[in-house]
Design a protein around this nucleic acid. Structure first.
Lengths: 107, 107
DNA sequence: ACAACAGATAACCATCCGGTTATGGTTTTG
DNA sequence: CAAAACCATAACCGGATGGTTATCTGTTGT
């Protein structure tokens, strides 16, 4: 049984949500406030997006006083890479099961 | 300017649609009828999904009489891989040699 | 103590999305 | 030529989704 990539695809399909993940990937730990300011949407919207990302395993949070720090969890992208290599014969032939390969590299 | 992966994420986020792409990737050219039978949804639903995939560049079609053959366009997944490597430093390190591969493949 | 701040949740709303049935346009078949 | 087959499109419907404002809890600072 392979991991289900539907949730990851769906979570990353929203540009605002993906932008949050991108910032966290590049800048490390950030508070909700820091993420909200340049996001273009309201703070509740950001909170909801962060919760979606969290449910998909793409981010984690850490409470510190009245602030909550979020950080990206890039390993959660593995099912995506696995899917690309597994179902697309094009990539499959060229990368020989890229996902599995990268998993082995992780050790 | 990087390719916009939103459309690809969104298109692949639906399981029925992704299953169509998977079948076309594995089995090559198939008619709408052949795709409809085991899909679990109606023929118009399949046609609409195929059109979505087509708009995202993930499939192409070829008319032959009263039948329309669809086939996968796996190169259209390249922006996905590019995005993963670009925004996730975690995977970026693992993709160091991959970027060159992708560019060389573009011929 | 209290005012201000950080964040999550509730309630609501408009739009999008994936499904359906019905139908129309071509092409093949009998 | 008439009927059947293949596919696309139209029209419609219910539920999911992304946004808002309002509010609540909890924490910090004066």
């Amino acid at each position: 049984m392979r991991a289900e990539p539907t949730a990851i695809f769906k979570t990353l399909s929203d540009p605002t949500r993906r932008a949050l993940f991108e910032r966290l990937s590049r800048e490390g730990e950030l508070t909700v406030h820091a993420l909200t300011v340049p996001s273009g949407v309201s703070q509740p919207a950001v909170s909801k997006h962060l919760n979606s990302l969290k449910l998909a395993g793409l981010v984690r949070d850490r409470r510190d006083g009245r602030e909550t720090y979020y950080h990206a969890e890039p390993k959660a992208l593995a099912p995506l890479i696995d899917w690309i290599g597994f179902y697309s014969t094009f990539w499959h032939n060229r990368f020989d099961r890229l996902g599995a390969l990268l998993k082995r590299m992780d050790q």
